[in-house]
């Protein structure tokens, strides 16, 4: 590609990550069709899509943090907390649902600000800081529920099971959220500055951007997205436990990695993350439908993650050049 045709910044429509994950997802659905036909049954797809939607939204949050060179391990605690708030606070009473949603959002902002303060302002290592916040959030979960699950309110469950044009409502919410977050990051000036800070903080600082605000702000937006994902999750699962977030920690990071966003920060592939969430969810159903044992299922999922990481981080060209026989010059024996 000649240099002058490369668009400025990262406005390219199809990044490497997006292409890769889109091809992989199409390939997976093809494999599902060929080898595990039952995983494409209407009933299974209708179960898988809402979970994929919640994971996609949580993955978007994680992507924002990773774009700032961070990582958010408090997704587990935060997610669990928002799930229990929107189930236990109303405790079956539809009229209290709205208040519960408001409390969950407030809690998300508070949790995000703690992370943002520790990482953006105090310059703590994000792994340590968010691990600490995670423990705090789980403390709040246990204090609030004593670990006891509550059945989802009927009105919320209605959202999770509703079909619009034969597609579950959460899928529409995930698509809309992905488009909105992508538009804000890629098309608005604050969004461009956000990406710039992640790519090179020093350069951003010298060009007069108040970088701390963006570094810390990523965690607040991330928690808000986890909160939305948690609300969807609570609407899908009839009686969520107090530990639902645990099931989102590794997959949310995996979605980011498979989507091609570098863990070192910088450009984020938000759409690719959302598609990677679909990939991971279908992979779950694919291996379930294959009927392999639980051990194999776990291995397949781990292998997918490893392949994703390897795809983007290993310099395959360099390895190719190092292969014997491909060496341009051979070293003479001494």
């Amino acid at each position: 590609m000649p240099k002058d045709t490369v668009p400025r910044g990262s406005n390219r429509l199809f990044s490497r990550g997006l292409t890769t994950v889109a091809v992989a997802t199409v390939g997976l659905f093809l494999a599902s069709f060929l080898f595990a036909n039952s995983s494409l049954n209407r009933g299974v797809v209708l179960t898988m899509l809402p979970f994929a939607s919640a994971l996609a939204i949580a993955g978007l949050g994680q992507t924002l943090v990773v774009m700032q060179g961070g990582i958010d391990l408090s997704v587990a605690g935060g997610f669990s907390l928002y799930v229990v708030i929107v189930t236990k606070y109303p405790a079956g009473d539809n009229s209290r649902l709205f208040a519960a949603l408001a409390i969950a959002v407030a809690a998300a902002i508070a949790a995000g600000m703690v992370n943002g303060f520790l990482v953006g302002r105090m310059r703590l290592n994000p792994i340590v800081a968010t691990l600490g916040t995670n423990a705090l959030l789980y403390g709040a979960v246990l204090w609030y529920t004593a670990g006891i699950p509550t059945t989802t309110t009927a009105r919320l469950a209605h959202l999770g099971s509703k079909l619009w044009l034969g597609i579950p409502a959460p899928a529409y919410i995930a698509v809309a959220t992905t488009l909105l977050v992508t538009a804000v990051v890629k098309l608005t000036p604050p969004g461009r500055r956000f990406e710039g800070v992640g790519a090179n903080e020093t350069a951003a600082l010298t060009s007069g951007i108040y970088t701390r605000r963006y570094r810390g702000g990523a965690y607040v937006w991330a928690q808000l997205l986890y909160c939305l994902a948690a609300i969807l999750h609570a609407s899908i699962v009839n009686q969520p436990t107090a530990y639902e977030g645990d099931n989102y920690l590794l997959p949310s990071v995996a979605a980011v990695v498979l989507g091609g966003t570098s863990l070192l920060g910088g450009r984020g592939n938000l759409v690719a993350t959302a598609i990677a969430a679909l990939f991971l969810s279908q992979l779950d159903q694919f291996v379930l439908a294959l009927g392999v044992t639980y051990a194999t299922r776990t291995l397949v999922q781990a292998a997918a993650l490893a392949a994703g990481v390897a795809l983007y981080t290993i310099d395959w060209g360099a390895i190719g050049r190092r292969l014997p026989g491909r060496r341009p010059i051979s070293v003479a024996p001494t």
């Binding site: 009933g43 299974v44 179960t47 639902e244």
Partner: peptide, 15 residues
């Protein structure tokens, strides 16, 4: 885990 139960059961129903 209720979420995993849901996924497992829907896969079995299809299979």
């Amino acid at each position: 885990d209720p979420a995993l139960t849901q996924k497992v059961l829907s896969a079995d129903i299809a299979k």
